[in-house]
Computed example of a mutant assay.
Amino acid sequence: MTTWFVTRHTGAIEWARRKGLEIDRQVDHLDPDAVAAGDTVIGILPVNLVARVCERKACYLNLSLDLPAEARGRELSADELEAYKARLEAYFVEARPHRLPGEHEGPDCE
């Protein structure tokens, strides 16, 4: 079982080191097809990639922050991540078919 950390940010890498997270593979971008059942993926990923990770029977841990608008769009240091209450939160995401408003055939979101 592999623990992946998906980030290109040095502040996040340092934050993980400080927390004592055991990371097997740090990557800038994740190829979901490389993830195996039982793996753990840590990062801030788009929901469609999280669904693919979960579909492969891996665990997804989101690096969540309480980030104010003025701090968005720039590199954050490990200290700033701490200040913005960085934490890991487990999510399970499942892609489901739906129909757009006005379409008459196909399943709805439930």
Results as ranks from 00 to 15, higher is better:
Phe5Thr: 01
Val6Leu: 04
Thr7Arg: 06
Arg8Ser: 10
Arg8Val: 03
His9Leu: 07
His9Gln: 13
Gly11Ile: 13
Gly11Asn: 13
Gly11Leu: 09
Ala12Arg: 14
Ala12Cys: 10
Glu14Asp: 14
Glu14Cys: 01
Glu14Met: 05
Trp15Asp: 04
Trp15Lys: 06
Ala16Tyr: 08
Ala16Ser: 14
Ala16Phe: 10
Ala16Asn: 01
Ala16Cys: 04
Arg17Val: 04
Arg17Asp: 12
Arg17Pro: 01
Arg17Met: 03
Arg18Lys: 15
Lys19Ile: 03
Lys19Tyr: 07
Gly20His: 12
Glu22Tyr: 09
Glu22Thr: 14
Ile23Thr: 08
Asp24Cys: 02
Asp24Thr: 08
Asp24Ala: 11
Asp24Pro: 06
Asp24Glu: 09
Arg25Gly: 00
Arg25Pro: 01
Arg25Asp: 01
Arg25Leu: 10
Gln26Thr: 15
Gln26Asp: 00
Gln26Phe: 03
Asp28Ala: 15
His29Arg: 14
His29Asp: 05
Leu30Ser: 03
Leu30Ile: 04
Leu30Thr: 08
Asp31Gly: 06
Asp31Thr: 13
Pro32Asp: 01
Pro32Ile: 00
Ala34Leu: 09
Val35Arg: 03
Ala36Ile: 02
Ala36Trp: 07
Gly38Asn: 13
Gly38Glu: 05
Gly38Val: 09
Gly38Lys: 14
Asp39His: 14
Thr40Asn: 07
Thr40His: 09
Thr40Cys: 05
Val41Asp: 01
Val41Ile: 03
Ile42Glu: 06
Ile42Lys: 05
Ile42Ala: 01
Ile44Ala: 05
Ile44Gly: 03
Ile44Pro: 00
Leu45Asn: 02
Pro46Ile: 02
Pro46Ala: 11
Pro46Leu: 05
Val47Glu: 11
Val47Lys: 11
Leu49Asp: 07
Leu49Arg: 11
Leu49Ile: 10
Val50Tyr: 01
Val50Lys: 03
Ala51Val: 06
Arg52Ala: 15
Cys54Lys: 11
Cys54Phe: 00
Glu55Ala: 15
Arg56Phe: 08
Lys57Ala: 07
Cys59Thr: 15
Cys59Ser: 09
Cys59Phe: 04
Cys59Pro: 00
Tyr60Val: 00
Tyr60Gly: 00
Tyr60Trp: 02
Tyr60Thr: 00
Tyr60Ala: 00
Leu61Ser: 01
Leu61Gln: 09
Asn62Lys: 08
Leu63Trp: 13
Ser64Leu: 06
Leu65Pro: 06
Asp66Ile: 07
Asp66Ser: 09
Asp66Phe: 03
Asp66Arg: 14
Leu67Ile: 12
Leu67Val: 01
Leu67Asn: 04
Glu70Asp: 15
Glu70Val: 09
Ala71Ile: 01
Arg72Met: 13
Arg72Pro: 00
